Computed example of a mutant assay.
Amino acid sequence: MQIPFLQRLQGLTGTPVNKIVAAGAGAEKAASERMLQHVLAGLPEVLGAAVVQVASGVALATYTSSREFALSKALGFNAEVVKQQQKALAALQLGPEEQLEEILITLHTQLHLLRLLPDGKRFLYVAVDCRDTNLGIAREVMRTCE
């Protein structure tokens, strides 16, 4: 049963867990939700996922499987990583065909992938436990979200 008061009360306790939370409206919101649904279908053990605007670092949609995974804190920093890498590639003057596609951050037990979407204005972020998920599968799921 959906009780609005209880839903608002749960929202005050922190980030919703095991639920896609979308911001904004219209087609962009719907597309962001669909991307995360696709990620969840392909990677059911995902720790966190988000669709993020590169310019502002604002999340259009997020999903986390644990309250301890502070996804919202990391997204702005990840957007900055993408922007700085784009600047570094521009400084190399590699040519227009060489565009940033993906950034992989490897930790001891986790893999964090940032994949630029075709419009170049947003990226898909996925964090997985490397003991549960194969890097190749994670990459393929992200690639097919586009």
Rank of each mutant, 00 (worst) to 15 (best):
M1A: 13
Q2W: 07
I3H: 07
I3R: 09
R8S: 13
L9C: 07
G11P: 05
T13W: 08
T15P: 07
T15K: 12
P16A: 10
V17Q: 03
V17T: 07
N18W: 01
K19D: 04
K19F: 00
I20M: 09
G24T: 01
G26V: 04
E28W: 01
A30T: 13
S32F: 11
S32L: 13
M35H: 14
M35C: 15
L36Y: 09
Q37S: 15
Q37P: 08
Q37C: 08
V39Y: 10
G42D: 09
L43V: 12
L43A: 05
P44C: 11
L47S: 10
L47G: 12
L47W: 05
A49E: 10
A50I: 07
Q53P: 00
V54W: 06
G57R: 02
G57H: 05
G57D: 06
G57T: 04
L60M: 10
L60D: 00
L60N: 07
A61L: 03
Y63T: 03
T64A: 07
T64Q: 10
T64E: 02
S65Q: 10
S66Q: 09
S66Y: 02
S66L: 03
F69S: 02
A70D: 10
S72M: 10
K73P: 00
K73N: 14
K73D: 13
L75S: 04
G76T: 14
G76P: 08
F77V: 12
E80C: 11
E80W: 13
V81L: 15
K83N: 11
Q84C: 06
Q84A: 15
Q86P: 08
K87D: 15
K87V: 12
K87W: 07
A88L: 14
L89C: 02
L89D: 04
A91S: 13
A91I: 01
L94S: 08
G95E: 05
G95A: 06
P96R: 08
P96D: 12
L100K: 08
L100N: 02
L100Q: 04
E102A: 01
I103P: 04
L104H: 06
I105S: 15
H108A: 09
H108T: 12
Q110L: 06
H112L: 04
L113N: 02
L113Y: 09
P118C: 07
P118K: 05
D119R: 05
G120S: 01
F123Y: 13
V126T: 12
A127L: 00
D129G: 02
D129W: 01
C130F: 00
C130Y: 01
C130Q: 11
D132F: 11
N134V: 11
L135R: 14
L135E: 15
A138N: 12
V141H: 10
M142Q: 14
R143G: 09
R143E: 14
E146G: 15
